[in-house]
Design a protein around this nucleic acid. Structure first.
Lengths: 206, 206
DNA sequence: ATCAAATTCACCCAATTGGAGGATTGACTC
DNA sequence: GAGTCAATCCTCCAATTGGGTGAATTTGAT
């Protein structure tokens, strides 16, 4: 019995190419191909492949969102992201959302098969760079490295304060508040206030 | 032993006027007067008055914030807000933050004393309008009345989605997303995304 | 049948926000 | 003394957000 590969990828050329490479490899079969999450997720969930290749940049429901949805219902399936740029926030986000690793579009067939084999054995194909980022992220998650002042600011955000009110309360300028918030966002790997507030909750900051 | 009244109010004229009215009334003494939360909170907490009159519109730490801070350390003190406009979100926010009621600046002395008496006996001086708003708020808090679609949107906000991504995911226009979010804000009595997300958590929406 | 909602969409406008730089001070370490 | 970091402040700019108002359609309940 060969390893079943599913694929959600909107670019027809890449879909055909990858499908071809996989089908030509003994022991592998690309049994499901979809152009979008909207088309594929239901089928993927009812008949889960061994490995799912998921494009990151999909129109409509994007890859990260797709992974999140699938992971809600299936924790065993191996999901690998397909991406062009390696150093991308989306890659990081995908891993956080539950992806197992990723493949660069344009990976030579030999290495691609090796990665599939690796993933199927429980490995997590990803570059050292990203791996590092992930490790740092999870290290930080137990014991944040926010300064006292930053925690004070974050706490304010959790009460719904904005730049101005925080500036008034803390007797500093709006620009300084902004500056702190930018640093907080960097440390927490978030880009918006709502995400920061949620992350704060996870970290026990209220 | 007369009833001790504390006051935090930045307008000197009002401070003197109210203080005078209170001191002239048998059984009442305005024993503490401050122009700002920064000046007064420490003293108020170490020597709590029976009733604290707190201006809503204070420079620096505003009245709502002040109430929140005081309530963290003292749950027994009666706190009445001083405000000019009755139909104000801040009044509502103050009550949520732990104030017992409020007084309109410009209330005739007789009614003012009556309100103090009322508050001291455990009453909650407030207009029917605001009272109604509060009641509706607490009714809603056990069992929100958000529609399915609104919960779907709110849930998206909790994942950190923005107008555009939600529009893509739900196949509706950005304007519609915005429209829903505006309605959600109204129903939850919030004005920003961060507040909405926190309220969602309280309501069990994730 | 009518009225009230939920859902969808549009336009306008002001305020806030997020991102990218850079600068200064003070404290602490090596 | 040099280097690092936290905290403070700044400018510029683009994008997002929040609020107001209005309106069409559908659905559901009275």
């Amino acid at each position: 019995m060969s390893i079943n590969i599913g694929m959600i990828e909107d670019d027809e050329d890449i879909r055909k190419l990858l499908g071809f490479i996989i089908d030509q490899s003994p022991g592998y079969a690309c049994t499901q191909r979809f152009a979008s999450c909207e088309d594929g997720i239901k089928e993927i969930l009812t008949h889960p492949p061994d490995i799912l290749l998921m494009d990151i940049d999909l129109p409509g429901i994007n890859g990260v969102e797709g992974v999140r949805t699938i992971r809600k219902h299936n924790t065993r399936m191996v999901i690998l992201m397909l991406t062009i740029h390696e150093d991308d926030d989306s890659v990081f986000a995908s891993l956080c959302a539950g992806a197992n690793g990723y493949l660069l579009k344009g990976t030579p067939p030999v290495r691609l098969l090796a990665a599939l084999e690796d993933a199927h054995q429980g490995g997590a194909p990803m570059s050292a760079q990203i791996a590092n980022k992930v490790v740092r992220y999870f290290h930080q998650s137990k014991g944040n490295d926010l300064s006292d002042r930053e925690i004070e600011i974050l706490s304010g955000l959790c009460r719904g304060e904005n730049y101005s009110s925080l500036a008034d309360i803390l007797f500093i300028s709006k620009n300084t508040v902004k500056s702190h918030i930018k640093n907080i966002y960097k440390k927490l790997h978030v880009h918006t206030r709502a995400e920061a507030v949620l992350k704060a909750r996870e970290l026990g900051i209220k």
